[in-house]
């Protein structure tokens, strides 16, 4: 299960909409070991493509070092699909290298409604998980819970 503050999810969806029709990508950092996403870091899609994404390598080094210095880790790795459902493709699965992360997918194919789903991807296996949206900032107590599927 991924528990995420609505404000963070809104930032991710806004990023995905802004980059549409190209795929948007980024991470949500949180304290190492907490499983709590707290800080959205939009990343440059070096491919600038509607069907592919790859973090810019130099930006990734800088952001990974910054997370290390702050005692954070990439709790969530997100990207958008702009014409297909929010489900990991074969490409997504073959390149997934963070078995501890939540892979959050946003589909922007419907301009009126963002489809958001979350997965674990490890050893080539995809497991969908519930997304619980909390109204608080960061790890605040969830005031209202809604399972998004």
């Amino acid at each position: 299960m991924l528990t995420i503050a609505r404000s963070l999810l809104d930032q991710v969806i806004a990023h995905a909409r802004a980059d549409h029709p190209d795929e948007a990508c980024g991470v949500i950092a949180g304290p190492a070991g907490s499983d709590r996403p707290e800080r959205v870091i939009p990343m440059t899609n070096a491919e600038r493509s509607p069907t592919f994404y790859r973090f810019d390598s130099m930006e990734q080094l800088r952001v990974w070092r910054e997370m290390d210095d702050r005692g954070e880790e990439p709790v969530v790795i997100y990207h958008s699909h702009t014409a297909t459902p929010a489900y990991p493709s074969r490409t997504d699965v073959s390149y997934a290298m963070e078995p501890g992360a939540h892979y959050l997918l946003v589909s922007t194919r419907d301009p009126g409604r963002a489809e958001v789903r979350s997965f674990r991807i490890a050893d080539g296996a995809v497991t969908e998980e519930d997304v619980v949206v909390s109204d608080g900032e960061g790890g605040g107590r969830p005031a209202a819970r809604a399972a998004l599927r």
Binding site: E23, C25, V27, M43, S49, P50, T51, F52, Y53, R54, F55, S57, Q60, L61, W64, I77, H79, H81, T82, A83, T84, P88, S89, R90, T91, D92, Y95, A96, M97, E98
Partner: peptide, 12 residues
Amino acid sequence: VTVLPAVAGGSR
């Protein structure tokens, strides 16, 4: 020397 797996994927 720092090794980082690329973060990449695609819709196809």
